[in-house]
Amino acid sequence: MTRVKAEQLAAARGCVLGLMLGDAIGATGGNVPARGTLRATSAGQLACFTLEGLIRADVRGAHRGIGHAPGVVWRSYHRWATIQGISDVKPLPDEKSPSGWLSRVPALGERRGSAPATVAALQRQRMGTISNPAGASTGAHALTRTLPVGLYPSCNPAEVAALTHTGDALGAAWLGATVVRLLAAGTNLHDAMESARLHAADWYQAAERSLAPALTAARSRPRTLHELTRLAPDATAVSALAGGAYAAASFPSRDTVREALLFAASAGDGGHAVRVTGALLGTVHGPDALPVDWVSRLELAWTADTLARDLMTQVQDNPSGGEYVEATDPNWWNR
């Protein structure tokens, strides 16, 4: 049996916890209260269900030989909408009630802001594809909820983004998740962003509007609020990637993660850039570099950490076995 390497686990946990911490800090606008729970938004909730979909897809592939990850993630988004009680989203025909432990996490069933493009696609009951995306939105949720796909390289991040979004949002999602994948493999932050930019053939415009200017600004004018607001002026996916990458590259060391998050949260783009910053720096430095006083108050800390661990365990060890492989954990399939 294989075992998850410590470096792999640290990168995955750091990515997911950093993303969720960025989500909560973004919700405060950078004015983090001294006490109390740091709550998730719909962006963080959807990222959790993306991870659930990836895990389920891998389990399905091991047992049935088919596990189209974007399609399984689409079903996870259905579960999110169902437990939230969102109107006009019909339950899945083969699921009388939402299954899996994630559907029983109270904070995931609470409405925490809107996700209009995702909700609209679910209400239309049409799963978008790269060649035929759903809707017309290029919003940041396509990127932020897709960043963890970088931890699961067998899935194309753009396909997950295309479920509900279109245009440059697909490119931004591919770029962001590709940077996460490279970071998790041990590439340093600057080289990971540069490599993703250089290899973004299908997403050249998104790369030149996000990673290219972010890298240039981080080299010549780091830690400058004017540059941050210029790079991240709105709530689009390209804007979030540019601002988040710039903040991470401006504060790349493990002892400046707090400053990086507060800086990114000041972008004024609705908290999207700081989610990217948290995911990138968390992947680079691991969970131990995240501010303990914040993570200890993070509402979905246990949920996020469990999902990160479960994904790595499933990919490396496949505890539920398969058609010709005995299960090492008889409860994994039901989980």
Rank of each mutant, 00 (worst) to 15 (best):
M1F: 10
T2Q: 13
V4K: 03
K5M: 13
E7A: 14
A10H: 06
V16D: 00
G26P: 02
V32I: 14
V32Y: 02
A34D: 12
G36Y: 11
T41N: 06
Q45V: 01
F49D: 03
T50C: 12
T50I: 07
L51I: 01
L51T: 02
G61P: 11
H63I: 14
I66C: 11
V72E: 10
V72Y: 06
R79Q: 07
W80Q: 04
A81T: 01
Q84F: 08
S87R: 09
P93C: 09
E95M: 11
R104D: 04
R104E: 10
A107D: 12
G109C: 10
E110S: 08
R112L: 04
R112H: 10
G113Q: 00
A117V: 06
T118D: 14
V119C: 07
A120H: 03
A121S: 11
Q123N: 03
R124L: 12
G128E: 10
T129D: 11
P133R: 08
P133D: 06
S137A: 04
A140K: 08
A140E: 03
H141Y: 13
H141M: 11
T146K: 05
V149G: 02
V149L: 10
L151D: 02
C155H: 03
T164E: 13
T166H: 05
G167V: 08
D168E: 15
W174Y: 05
G186T: 00
T187G: 07
L189T: 05
D191A: 04
M193A: 11
A196Y: 06
L198G: 11
H199K: 14
A200P: 02
E208Q: 13
A214H: 01
T216G: 05
P222I: 02
T229R: 14
A232C: 09
A247Q: 04
A248I: 01
E259N: 07
A265L: 00
A267W: 00
A267I: 01
D269H: 05
G270F: 05
G271S: 09
G271H: 07
G271W: 02
T277P: 00
L281A: 10
G282Q: 01
T283I: 13
H285F: 07
P287D: 10
R297D: 13
L298A: 05
E299Q: 06
E299K: 02
T306E: 11
T306N: 05
A308V: 08
R309M: 13
T313W: 07
T313E: 12
V315S: 09
N318C: 15
G321V: 07
A327S: 08
T328H: 15
N331L: 15
N331Q: 15
